[in-house]
Design a protein around this nucleic acid. Structure first.
Length: 741
DNA sequence: AGCACGCCGACT
DNA sequence: GTCGGCGTGCTC
């Protein structure tokens, strides 16, 4: 029996420490156990990563106590932490933060308990008769408890029997009943019931796809991850559900990742209503859970009470026992990339975890990322395609409106073109609904003085301030800074201010002016501040109380409304001209995504895309629903320019409140990085970041690329450890970045 | 990450 | 002479 344990502390110490395992804990401590250990004069939580016969130092302290009875972290997840630290170039303690939720790490939260009561001994008829005369309430309680040997929660009893509380107290004094605390789940779905939703019949195409998936699920570790490319409405979700059933049938669990934004009650309902009836519980993990809820869900998963997990990015680390399948829905979604350390990508972690477990991995999308498609092309993934909609409906017709022509025609900047206006009018007349999409909230993205050219800028970021008319304020969309909207130009006091760049508020206003009789509702981060607002608006839309829904990203996904026959994209260019090699891909994916909202019912849908660059490939291929065409030209472009997936990008961003310090530090770092650079690595910079200033910090970027990440990652880590930075100056490393600004 | 230790300037 | 500034280094 090992007498010592090597412990990784929760805080970033940069090395491991050995402790003695006290005899009473000898059987309980194993790799993955969570322990509290003495460090100097304090106690710190940590994770046992290795058992030892001999400690590495002469004197060791004993482990103070064990946190939780069974090992919290499976060896696979420990290995995953190491992999993340190596690949994403971060301390392993930081990687552990992603793997173990904070509430679990603190080990302070406990299960919510409820006071319950049960009979202390069988009812003796004489006692009962005596009670019936002198204390009828107590007699009633005894009789009510008789059928429940496991006890009854006190609140439930009180609900049925008035005065049960007092009666129980007296009965307990007499020793006739016993009260005890039992754990209850903090379940937000406690009061919901789910109608069983039986598996649907698969069509021929789905069958072929499903057979491939089933093969992978049944032979974990033997087959490559499956990339399921299925057009909108081709029934991918049904395949996910049936694949999960295969895993369950094999006695294994499953994780289903979805983008946070589409983790709506409807999504969860669909899963719960498929699986709950067979007694398989579904755990839900997302960022809006309370600490208590997260704690309960985590334990439900780890203890095997919930064998299916549905959740956002971080759910890829869910402690599912005997994991059989990880599904990543909408695998192309950027929100799978975590934008703070550890900067992992949920889809890529799914693939790595799949190989570690081993378990099947299924990636699904209507518009697979260029990276994933390339992995399929090179045989790293297995490609399965669904080309037809299950309902055999045609794809909606897409028209592209040239906003340049429209601006000349209307003699001013056109927000709603005549053709879009006519299409909306037609829907109002026919009692159908329209969705207008614009990826920018607020009224106008900047305000400019026509006389002196002054633009209101954020004092802390190099970004113009967005005017929000409802709030009558200027807001920085990067750092959240707000200030009062100036009545006159702050620079030259000219009273005329021009609004530049259209936001959802302004679209809402235009619609109000064009269609005074229509009910218009806006749905963006500004109108969805209340917790219930999202549900309410969708309900109002579903029941026809809204004619036109205007919104941002959040209306682009997962909404299924049969009465929506028109989708308008107010400005397809808004994301297109960023200094980002993925801008084109993102735009294409978004357009296809949003277009998929139209024509889900019996009436054929129509999509109108407004653009100042109507001949851009992203727009033209989206118009033709031509994923293959877009992908081919995009892959060719990426190869020509040496962009991912033909290389891996690593971005090192140096930030400091002082411009010169940031620049100098970045230069020093770049010089240090340039020494003994691994083969094949190209280094660029430092250059000022495209957003030179953010949150009051000046930012400089060093960009590196290499076909091999691991060697580069190791090199960067070594250089950073050996290069001290001045105070208030930090370097952030982003491997495979999505946010280049 | 904390928290001690330690080596130099403004107070009782 | 002492209090306390936060730079440096250690924690089994």
């Amino acid at each position: 029996m090992a007498r010592f344990a090597r412990v990784m502390l929760d805080q970033k110490t940069g090395r491991l420490f050995d402790y003695e395992i006290p005899a009473p804990l000898a059987d309980a401590v194993s790799v993955g156990s969570r322990v509290a250990v003495p460090v100097r004069d304090r106690q710190i939580n940590g994770t046992v990563v290795e058992l030892l016969d001999e400690p590495s130092v002469a004197t060791v302290k004993p482990i103070a106590r064990l946190l939780g009875e069974r090992p919290a972290i499976a060896p696979t997840l420990l290995r995953l932490a190491d992999w993340i630290a190596t690949y994403y170039c971060c301390p392993v303690e930081v990687a552990m933060r992603a793997i173990l939720p904070q509430v679990i790490r603190n080990a302070k939260m406990t299960h919510k308990t409820i006071r319950s009561v049960r009979l202390a001994r069988p009812i003796d008829p004489e006692t009962l008769a005596a009670l019936k005369r002198r204390a009828p309430r107590q007699a009633e309680v005894l009789e009510a408890l008789a059928p429940f040997p496991d006890g009854v929660p006190l609140p439930a009893l009180s609900e049925r029997l008035h005065g049960a509380r007092e009666a129980v107290a007296h009965l307990a004094d007499k020793g006739l009943v016993a009260t005890f605390d039992s754990a209850i789940a903090r379940d937000p779905w406690r009061n919901e019931s789910f109608v069983h939703h039986a598996p649907l019949e698969l069509n021929a195409e789905q069958r072929v796809a499903f057979d491939a998936v089933r093969e992978t699920v049944r032979a974990p570790g033997k087959t490559a991850p499956v990339l399921l490319h299925g057009v909108t409405g081709s029934g991918k979700t049904e395949i996910y559900l049936q694949a999960i059933q295969i895993a369950l049938d094999a006695g294994r669990g499953a994780i289903m990742l979805v983008p946070e934004i589409s983790l709506t009650p409807q999504t969860v309902e669909r899963f719960k209503s498929r699986f709950l009836h067979s007694g398989t519980d579904v755990a839900v993990l997302h960022s809006h859970l309370s600490d208590g809820e997260r704690h309960d869900e985590w334990h439900r998963i780890r203890d095997g009470r919930a064998r299916i997990v549905i959740g956002a990015r971080s759910a890829v680390f869910a402690p599912v026992q005997n994991l059989g399948l990880i599904v990543v829905d909408e695998e192309h979604e950027n929100s799978y990339k975590q934008e703070e350390a550890p900067r992992y990508h949920g889809r890529d972690i799914a693939v790595v975890r799949g190989s570690f477990e081993p378990c099947a991995v299924l990636l699904g999308s209507a518009t697979p990322s260029i990276e994933s498609y390339q992995n399929a092309a090179t045989g790293k993934y297995r490609l399965v395609e669904l080309t037809q909609r299950v309902d055999d409906k045609k794809m909606p017709a897409i028209r592209v409106i040239d906003l340049r022509q429209e601006t000349i025609k209307q003699k001013r900047h056109a927000i709603i073109s005549d053709k879009l206006a006519a299409a909306i009018r037609l829907r109002i007349e026919r009692g159908e609904q329209s969705i207008l999409f614009l990826n920018r909230r607020g009224f106008s993205s900047s305000i400019i003085c026509p006389k002196c050219g002054h633009v209101c800028k954020c004092p802390d970021c190099s970004l113009s301030l967005t005017f929000h008319r409802a709030a009558k304020r200027l807001v920085c969309h990067l750092c959240g800074h707000t200030e009062k909207s100036p009545p006159v130009c702050p620079s030259c006091s000219d009273p005329a201010i021009r609004f530049q760049g259209v936001g959802t508020e302004r679209v809402e206003e235009s619609l109000g002016a064009l269609f005074p009789e229509a009910k218009v509702r806006r749905m963006d981060a500004d109108t969805m501040t209340r917790k219930e607002a999202y549900r309410e608006t969708l309900h109002a839309f579903k029941t026809g109380k809204i004619d036109i829904l205007v919104g941002t990203q959040m209306i682009a996904k997962g909404l299924h409304f049969p009465n929506v026959t028109l989708v308008g994209i107010v400005n397809a260019d808004s994301a297109l001209h960023l200094a980002d090699f993925r801008a084109s891909e993102r735009t294409f994916q978004l357009l296809v995504q949003v277009a998929g909202r139209a024509g889900r019912g019996d009436v054929e849908g129509e999509v109108i895309i407004q653009s100042f660059t109507p001949f851009h490939p992203a727009i033209q291929y989206a118009k033709r629903h031509d994923y293959a065409g877009f992908r081919e030209q995009e892959i060719a472009l990426r190869e020509r320019c040496g962009f991912p997936p033909f290389t891996h990008l690593v971005l090192v961003t140096v930030r400091s409140p002082h411009e010169s310090v940031a620049e100098l530090s970045a230069k020093t770092l770049a010089k240090a990085l340039d020494v003994d650079l691994p083969e094949g690595v190209k280094l660029l910079g430092p250059n000022p970041a495209p957003l030179e200033r953010a949150h009051g910090q000046y930012r400089f970027q060093i960009s590196l690329d290499s076909p091999k990440v691991l060697a580069l990652s190791r090199h960067i880590r070594a250089v950073l450890n050996a290069t001290p930075l001045p105070e208030e100056t930090f370097a952030a490393v982003d491997v495979d970045p999505y946010q280049l600004l």
